[in-house]
Design a protein around this nucleic acid. Structure first.
Length: 225
DNA sequence: TTCCAGCACT
DNA sequence: AGTGCAGGAA
């Protein structure tokens, strides 16, 4: 399978523009303020699944106040867990999953498996969350490859072949190349924020977009007029 | 009505 | 590969 990535020059220009945008317009969230411990980092990512970051920011600190540790989740009634999660949606699945994950974590005395394959055996631990653990806790340049990052990359470069982001080798490779920088954490946040605020799913702000002159999606939209 | 820092189950 | 989950905002 031939997978040709964009040239180093193209990727560097893309990274530079996004980072300079990020330092002016990037979003601030509680889970970005400090170096998080594994518990807080994983909780943040689970709350963020299929949920707008702005919505999560209203609940995140309250969740940590009520459930400050894996143990507190094991000890609580699932209904208590659900009631905190209700404003976010997906609350039954998340409550059940968090319970299962917390029980595993207590089994291992709070120690995460140190390799990716074992990590992904944990409840709720899919490809996205495993990447987040690598990025945030293990300092690896892994991509937070979600619908936002996928949308931006697909518009700017080219569309994926497979329906599922997680199984598309092109998006995997491309996103890894994009965030493979000394400051992978900020590079990831830059992509996510830019995709959420400018390269939006509905009504993208192409006219003010700093990437538009090289963007395949924008060029096509102009051509269509 | 669509969309959102996905995952588990079929 | 397809689908359910789910409340809230645009």
């Amino acid at each position: 399978m031939l997978l040709r990535l964009p040239s180093k020059h193209i990727i560097q220009a893309f990274q530079r523009k996004l980072l300079s945008w990020y330092f002016l317009h990037g979003r601030k969230f509680p889970w970005r303020e400090i170096q998080l411990d594994p518990y807080r980092a994983i909780i943040a990512e689970i709350l963020l699944q299929r949920t707008k970051a702005e919505t999560v920011s209203k609940v995140y600190l309250e969740f940590l106040r009520k459930f400050p540790s894996w143990k507190s989740i094991v000890d609580t009634d699932i209904k208590q867990l659900e009631s905190v999660l209700t404003p976010l949606g997906l609350y039954r699945q998340r409550a059940r999953g968090l319970k299962a994950l917390a029980e595993k974590m207590i089994d291992t005395k709070g120690i995460l498996p140190q390799n990716r394959d074992e990590l992904m055996q944990l409840p709720m631990m899919g490809q996205y969350l495993a990447n987040a653990v690598e990025l945030v806790l293990w300092n690896k340049p892994s991509p937070l490859l979600d619908v936002n990052m996928a949308r931006l990359l697909e518009r700017y470069f080219k569309k994926r072949k497979l329906a599922d982001i997680r199984h598309d080798p092109y998006l995997q490779k491309l996103s890894s190349a994009i965030v493979n920088t000394p400051n992978a954490l900020e590079m990831n946040w830059a992509v996510l924020d830019f995709a959420a605020l400018v390269c939006k799913a509905v009504k993208p702000e192409c006219e003010i977009c700093i990437l538009n002159e090289d963007c395949k999606y924008y060029k096509n939209s102009v051509k269509d007029k």
